[in-house]
Nucleic acid binder design. Structure first.
Lengths: 175, 175
DNA sequence: GTCTATAGGGTGATAGAC
DNA sequence: GTCTATCACCCTATAGAC
């Protein structure tokens, strides 16, 4: 609260005047940060597009949003791991099973056409999110290991934007 | 310190008797958790094996170690993001440039033979680590979203152990 | 609305009895 | 070695002046 007050150039007491408690302030920030991230993702995945187009769109959407808020993933995952129950209640609205079911149908159709190898929808989505989100989670470590400044990190991410979708599509394509 | 003392069924004072300060205790735990993880990884990557074999070995090593300490990634990344300088000093020993350089040579050789598409060594390593580490980082969220218990999560990881290496190799192979 | 002052509770660390 | 008691500090939250 002190840090936030300092950054806002106001007094700690004023934060409590506006937000009542640290907990309520946190929830407001969390909702904003986390926000409709999942919804917009689910929307693309459930949409009516060819599989490869869909993968490209999800990757582009992911990297675009994450580039705007590079610290969001570690903030969110951290909070979820510290307090799983609270978060889960927020996710009840998202029809995960339905979205996964639809996506699996689309995958199965492509498999039958001989275009891709069989894969579970959940595994493919985890793969996509892994490749998009992990670099942001590991940003401080990557920057340290590869001696990158913020500019170079952003450049690497932009390179990935182009490469990751191709990597995923190749990963599931039949040879 | 209170939580640790409780778990250890001893008094807080005793922790200070043995570890002097919270900071020193933390460092000991961190070194143990983090430990030779990077070293053993670098060893495999710098080793003298065919590229595809190497990828399979790294994935197997990763998932094996992470399965033993599923909370390690979020703990480590969290600490690195809170305090990058401290961690970086620990990683000075690892000859990142050399390992990356060797790996890039091996990749380039396979590209010239027409076996794989061109890719930067760093990007490939990030891809591998993404696919291996992210599911553990997102474990609480995945468990919530996909309504998995710990057993089902472990089963999913075991499935990935077999699939991720193939996914990566297909991702870089020429068609 | 915005501030200062302070209550109330928790935390890291130490002193000192046993 | 292991404990209790306690100090000094910091943090959330509130009371009350302006």
């Amino acid at each position: 609260m002190q840090d936030i007050a300092d950054h806002a150039s106001v007094n700690k007491a004023l934060l409590h005047y506006y937000f009542t408690s640290k907990d309520k302030l946190f929830n407001i920030v969390f909702e904003q940060e986390f926000g409709n991230f999942f919804s917009s993702l689910a929307q693309v995945i459930a949409s009516d597009q060819p599989l490869f187009e869909k993968i490209k769109k999800v990757v582009a959407l992911d990297i675009e949003k994450l580039s705007q808020f590079p610290d969001m993933p570690i903030f969110v995952l951290n909070e979820v791991s510290r307090n799983p129950e609270v978060i889960l209640s927020r996710l009840q609205n998202i029809p995960v099973e339905m979205v996964l079911g639809l996506f699996q149908q689309q995958i199965n159709a492509e498999v039958e056409r001989g275009n891709i190898r069989p894969i579970a929808a959940g595994q493919l989505l985890v793969n996509i999110q892994s490749l998009c989100v992990f670099p942001f989670l590991a940003r401080p470590m990557l920057r340290g290991l590869m001696k990158m400044n913020e500019e170079e990190f952003k450049a690497m991410i932009q390179l990935r934007k182009n490469e990751v979708a191709e990597f995923i599509i190749n990963g599931i394509k039949t040879n």
